[in-house]
């Protein structure tokens, strides 16, 4: 499988990365090189093989469902590029 300019533009949009027309051209080539190379996995017979979900044989630990953390809004907001009235601030999304 290989990607074209239209597909790369689509995945760049999904990934929310702006890619200029010029970059689009070179990115198509780079991604296809990598995709051609990973294509060799199709040689491997994986019928009936379970997909890896965890490399360590461990059950996901569970804990009591209660609040054990929080209550420090200032610290959470401290690194925000823009914070207003105790919230993260973003460009206007509703007209």
């Amino acid at each position: 499988m290989s990607v074209d300019k239209e597909t790369v533009a689509k995945i760049a949009n999904l990934a929310r990365i702006e890619v200029s027309e010029d970059e689009l051209e070179s990115t198509v080539g780079e991604l296809n090189n990598i995709l051609d190379w990973v294509e060799q996995l199709s040689e491997v017979d994986t019928d009936g093989v379970a997909a890896m979900t965890s490399v360590v044989a461990a059950d996901l630990p569970r804990r009591e469902d209660k609040v054990t953390d929080g209550g420090y809004r200032e610290a959470v907001l401290k690194n925000a590029p823009v914070a207003e009235h105790g919230f993260f601030a973003v460009p206007k999304v509703i007209e």
């Binding site: 990973v38 491997v44 093989v49 379970a50 890896m52 490399v55």
Partner: peptide, 15 residues
């Protein structure tokens, strides 16, 4: 399925 799931199956074989 073609890429990610396939890779995770091969990963099982590598392990």
């Amino acid at each position: 399925d073609a890429y990610y799931l396939k890779a995770q199956r091969v990963r099982t074989l590598i392990a």
